[in-house]
Design a protein around this nucleic acid. Sequence first.
DNA 1: CTGTTGCATAACTGATAGGTTAAATAACGT
DNA 2: ACGTTATTTAACCTATCAGTTATGCAACAG
Lengths: 107, 107
Amino acid sequence: MQQLDATYSALSDPTRRAILARLALGEATVGEIAEPFPISGPAISRHLKVLEDAALIARRKQGQSHILSLNPQGLRSAQEWLDHYRAFWSGAFDRLDAHLKKKPETK
Amino acid sequence: MQQLDATYSALSDPTRRAILARLALGEATVGEIAEPFPISGPAISRHLKVLEDAALIARRKQGQSHILSLNPQGLRSAQEWLDHYRAFWSGAFDRLDAHLKKKPETK
DNA sequence: CTGTTGCATAACTGATAGGTTAAATAACGT
DNA sequence: ACGTTATTTAACCTATCAGTTATGCAACAG
């Protein structure tokens, strides 16, 4: 359960979501990831650590470069949580929908 | 896009996820929501504000009580974002899978 | 061995998060 | 009008976060 904390917390930062979007296109080194962002290297380095700790990405070292890639398992728990609640949410939506449709008819 | 910040940030707190879980069972007043938690009323009040600001819940006042309910639209953006990336994630997973299966055969 | 490249770690700063208690507001019962 | 109940707002504290610059370290190139 506290794994979800890390996952959603990691996803709550737009820079980190952008990094994930970049990695969705294929793996990249730290430098390649950092390039489009206007922040310092260390800042990127820590964003990557957050994503790695949340198991959203994986890292392998090749020479002096670190190559990052998406870790598909990382999103599983987050997805499952949302999927689990989607039913309830849909249910609430249906109830709201029914409520809104019933109101005018009672007039 | 910055709406996602609020949504994922709201979801990153276990107390708030528990509140959502409670509300998935049906609407409740602030007091009813607060009851099982070992934290103060004001703390709950602010959690509710965060959830409301993230559009994950809705509030209606009935007398002196505030009645909270799930707002099904609130999770839409979060769901859509995950759904959008699920394809890439699955793709990455398949590539990883293929990679792991190919390795032994090359031996 | 020396310098350079790619990246991480350390130390600091300002802002935000989550908690507290105390006070304010709003509706209810008498 | 008065006290009670339900909830929010204010003021404050501490911890964590996202950023910075400066330093450290491992791998490569000469």
